[in-house]
């Protein structure tokens, strides 16, 4: 037994690097079309395509990691992965703790949806939002009653079941859900602009990596390939660069 223990401890310490160029990309995998786990169990979506292309241009070797939303920043700063690429809006609050690359999506409007029959104004009712999102803070400050859920999908279920009167989330996440609900769900109120576009989150101490990705995003913006990707995943109405 002792031998095994010593070997295990020894192994933990003598273990040496092979090549240090791998960048680990953290994403949530529950927010289509930004990122989701497809039917084969792989990470898929706009950010998968984007991330792979960025890594390709920057000459990096990238590895994808799924991590739940509520612990996605703590796991970045403690070094479990090197970037967050999970539809994360750039906010001043987050910017205090981590750095963001330039935005790779225009500031995306958030919106409320409600069930088809309701005529009530969304902002006085019970509004569901995912925990620790900019929408959750917005709802809490707006005076509505906030109901928090761990995943975005649970917020939609809660609305369908009549638990809440409205859901607030990124419009591009809600749009396909509304479109496929056969009139069961609809947008209510206008678009709300909170947050400053979506960027990749990177540790503050990792400025080299930030510059690398900034340059790669620049080159994708310049040759229009970013716009092509946005149109592929978000449709024609999405705002382009």
């Amino acid at each position: 037994m002792k031998k095994i223990l010593y070997t295990a401890i020894l192994l933990a310490f003598i273990y040496v690097p092979a090549n240090a160029d791998t960048v680990r990309m953290g994403t949530e995998g529950a927010y289509p079309p930004y990122n989701f786990i497809n039917d084969n169990g792989e990470i898929d979506g706009f950010e998968r395509d984007l991330g792979d292309e960025l890594c390709d241009r920057a000459g990096l070797d990238c590895e994808w990691v799924q991590n739940d939303w509520d612990s996605i920043i703590p796991n970045l700063v403690s070094g479990n992965y090197d970037t967050i690429i999970a539809g994360m809006s750039i906010t001043a609050e987050r910017d205090e703790v981590i750095d963001f690359t330039q935005n790779y999506l225009q500031p995306d409007p958030s919106a409320y949806i409600t069930t088809g029959d309701g005529n009530k104004a969304a902002y006085i009712g019970v509004v569901a939002a995912q925990t620790a999102t900019i929408q959750a803070s917005h709802v809490a400050e707006s005076g509505a009653i906030l109901a928090e859920f761990a995943t975005p999908d649970e917020t939609i279920s809660a609305l369908r079941n009549g638990e809440v009167e409205a859901v607030m989330a990124d419009k591009s996440f809600l749009a396909p859900i509304v479109a496929e609900s056969n009139g069961g769900l609809k947008f209510i109120g206008g678009d709300v602009y909170i947050g400053g576009g979506v960027g990749m989150g990177i540790r503050e101490s990792d400025s080299d990596l930030k510059d690398t990705f900034d340059a790669a995003i620049d080159s994708m913006k310049a040759d229009g390939s970013l716009n092509t990707l946005i149109e592929k995943w978000f449709g024609d109405e999405a705002s382009l660069f």
Binding site: G79, R203, E204
Partner: peptide
């Protein structure tokens, strides 16, 4: 510990960044 970051040199990471996902 720098601010909220926890930074060790890349050789000290366990598992290493370059390791395949299954090791992680």
């Amino acid at each position: 510990w720098q601010g909220s970051d926890f930074i060790v040199c890349s050789a000290a990471k366990l598992p290493l960044n370059s390791d395949p996902q299954w090791i992680h």
